[in-house]
Design a protein around this nucleic acid. Structure first.
Lengths: 231, 231
DNA sequence: AATAGTTTTTAGCCATGGCTAAATTGTATC
DNA sequence: GATACAATTTAGCCATGGCTAAAAACTATT
């Protein structure tokens, strides 16, 4: 169980503690107020359980908790969350690139592995991948000292018709959704030509690898793109 | 948590359950009577805890338990144990070959990973390694349907002086011991020339990669060798 | 076969971290 | 400001799986 969330933390954290911290981090970066209900729904436990755990995390100085207020990570809590997130995303990329695990499956696998890899293994994986910056979904991989690079792009749904874009990030981890996108050829870095956008948030007509597809607006909203370099 | 110890098992097993089954399997194959004290000492918990867990495993039909008797794995229990052992050894080899993790470190890393990899990942690892038969210590990797190949060789301590052997297995997972052997050049498949064996179980004089070393008898007893092919 | 010594089991404690149900607090409306 | 409704917290239950200490059961010796 040799973890190394450094100095500050005395007793080792369980997978569960780590999952809560990661959840809080993700919800925070989404800009949401991390209320008990938001957190408990995200993490899939009852509100009572979430309160319980949050109190414990507060005792360990990993979060700041005031009754009836949104939770917030402390600097230490954020460091732990980022370490786990780094594990997660490194693992996703590793599984995808080194073992050809499809991009729609890496998330759930990494979800378990992220809690049990040592620092040494984390380092070895990062080195073998050439210290990558993003995972197979385009999500940024936090650096070892907790920096998260800003990812560029804007939603395909808010893009100009008639232009070609490159897919740089997919804001979803849902297996089915990712599998569907994969079938359409919409992998990371795929080029998408936006033919037209139906009005009133209607579907979009896109061309990927020579094939034309209709894409629901809510799906397109999850696709972060940048103008294709060829343009 | 999607495991697939097939049909027979209803609720998923914890890492702990799996560790117990693996321990029982290993002790059984050592030819030992798996009594409560042997088991509890091996697994590092008190005898009372071991009794407790063994009873639970018995309820799940994974072991046969009669008070005051040695425990024995049921066919299902053995299948689970072998699956975990397969995970463990595949992971050891994978970590060593693909990520250059030293052979003295792979054991503890695999010890945690073995419980959380999916069947799909297990398969991908096995495929990427070309369906290997042994791990970095020469321990056999159980096949997917639970077959364990017999490993050849005899202890270096019971070998003939003046001959050259090839190291095919090391019967130890101790980090320090393996690190020491590694420094001596005694990796898997290394060639060892046995110069002489001091009487009364004294140390042996061996030559590895052009260098001469004295080797304690108890250390040599852990080294399984076969005559070098060149001979 | 009785006793001594060891091994194993039982009984019962503890912490963890889910849960439900009830109480409380906060918020919004009249 | 009272009242209704939602969100949160508290209280207390449960299972898990360690633990210690005590009881029970085996084994060996005289």
């Amino acid at each position: 169980m040799a973890k190394n969330y450094s100095s500050e933390i005395s007793n080792p954290l369980s997978s569960n503690h780590e999952d809560y911290l990661k959840a809080i981090y993700i919800l925070e970066t989404r800009g949401e107020q991390v209320t008990n209900s938001v957190l408990s729904e995200y993490i899939g436990y009852t509100p009572a359980s979430a309160t319980n755990m949050v109190k414990k995390l507060a005792q360990m100085d990993l979060v700041i908790y005031r009754p009836h207020q949104a939770v917030a990570l402390t600097p230490t809590g954020r460091r732990v969350a980022l370490e786990i997130l780094r594990h997660h995303r490194l693992l996703e990329l590793f599984l995808h690139k080194t073992l050809d695990i499809p991009w729609d499956s890496v998330h759930e696998e990494a979800e378990r592995l992220e809690h049990v890899i040592s620092e040494a293994l984390e380092d070895a994986i990062a080195a073998s991948l050439g210290y990558p910056k993003v995972d197979p979904h385009g999500d940024p991989i936090p650096s070892k000292n907790g920096e998260v690079s800003h990812t560029p792009g804007h939603p395909l749904s808010q893009s100009e018709a008639g232009r070609t874009y490159r897919l740089v990030r997919v804001l979803s981890q849902e297996k089915e959704r990712l599998a569907y996108l994969g079938e359409l050829g919409l992998h990371l870095n795929a080029e998408v030509h936006l033919r037209e956008q139906a009005p009133f948030d209607g579907p979009m007509l896109v061309e990927v690898a020579g094939e034309e597809h209709a894409l629901a607006a809510d799906m397109a909203a999850l696709l972060q793109v940048v103008p294709a370099s060829a343009e």
